[in-house]
């Protein structure tokens, strides 16, 4: 395991200072934005820097679905499993993604390009089935379009 550079984490802390307990979640969000996931060394370092117990940071990181403790894909594909999308075939979309990328929910492609997740309703039901890649929405997704969508992300 190569050592993780703590510099960017310290920079995030400095940006947000003063960080107390109440800001633990935004802190983790910013750290994840910075590293793409929450590296263990970083969390332990943040704990000693801020005085927020490592157990709290770990508890938060495992409670909230958006945090990853393992290295994650550069892009996160989220398939909506809300009612509308469910009814309009998100399963098939998920299968298409599996065909295209070879990953199921919770998995990451070997080249770390994509991670796949499902998410409870993204609030775009009128365009179901919906897929999000990072912050972009794709509506009325056709299984045939999956490849095309993915090709837009490096």
């Amino acid at each position: 395991m190569t050592a993780v550079d703590l510099g960017p984490a310290r920079a995030v802390l400095e940006d947000m200072a003063p960080v107390d307990h109440g800001l633990a979640i935004p802190l983790l969000q910013n750290i994840q934005d910075t590293y793409g996931y929450l590296p263990r060394e970083v969390l332990l370092d943040l704990s000693s820097e801020t005085g927020i117990p490592a157990s709290h940071l770990f508890g938060l990181a495992t409670f909230y679905a958006q945090f990853y403790l393992e290295e994650h894909g550069r892009h996160t594909v989220r398939v909506c499993r809300g009612t509308a999308c469910h009814v309009r075939g998100r399963k098939i979309i998920q299968e298409a993604i599996d065909d295209e990328l070879g990953i199921g929910p919770g998995e990451t492609t070997e080249d770390r390009r994509f991670s796949l997740e499902t998410v409870a309703c993204v609030g775009t039901c009128f365009l179901a089935p919906v897929v999000m890649v990072d912050h972009d929405y794709f509506g009325n997704v056709d299984p045939k379009k999956v490849g095309e969508i993915m090709s837009g992300y490096e």
């Binding site: 107390d20 307990h21 633990a24 979640i25 983790l28 709290h56 938060l60 679905a65 958006q66 998410v119």
Partner: peptide, 19 residues
């Protein structure tokens, strides 16, 4: 939010805001 449906519930939301 950080991806927890239950945080829509008001007391859970407060807990979340408190870190």
């Amino acid at each position: 939010g950080a991806g927890a449906f239950v945080c829509g519930e008001e007391t859970a939301m407060i807990a979340s805001l408190e870190g």
